[in-house]
Amino acid sequence: MADFSTTDMTGDQEEIRRADNLPSDFAQPDVPQDEPAAPPAEATLSDSAQGGEGPLVKFIQDASEPGQVVVTVVAANLGEVAGLAFTLAYDDQELELLDQLNALDLEGSSSYAQTRFIFKPMGPGLVSFGVARFCTGKSPWGPSDQCGGVKLNDESPIASFKFRLLASSGTTPLSFKQGTTLIRRPNREAVRAHFVNAVLAIQEVTP
């Protein structure tokens, strides 16, 4: 599911912003080939709550390769949504953030709406994410929800994060930083959802 190629980007501007937002060493296009290999390890995501009836945002593990892990934030049972934000907290001694990707399309079939998003490093082990539906030309006499939104009833990917595993064993938490989560419906009503934290178990890979 997670594809970190640039073809999924919404345009050059977004790509530039995304690159600007990455750690400087990652933003360099030419990575030396003799860079030390990542520790041979793999990770297993656990403690994610199973989807319930109510609105839920959680982590799932996505495709990985040795020494790396990709986790995706997914949402379920949110109903109609116009914007979503959270700050992901991780242990930067255990994980190094390599890349991130917006996976949520809030445009739907609308021709006048645009999806815009941002990833912003907030400090060591913290990255903020926000995605929202943008519409121009809102009528002064229109309803407050005239820009509309996208229904997220089924489990829907929101954003993916690709980490390098710095440790070869142990566990490391992934969490949504308290007080930073936000989901809004098209009429700006806040959605109360359960944000479920998770734990990554890291295991050394036997060659």
Partner: peptide, 14 residues
């Protein structure tokens, strides 16, 4: 942070 982008989107286009 990202929440400000979400809040901004409601004012955008007005």
């Amino acid at each position: 942070d990202g929440r400000d982008l979400v809040e901004f989107s409601f004012a955008y286009g007005t």
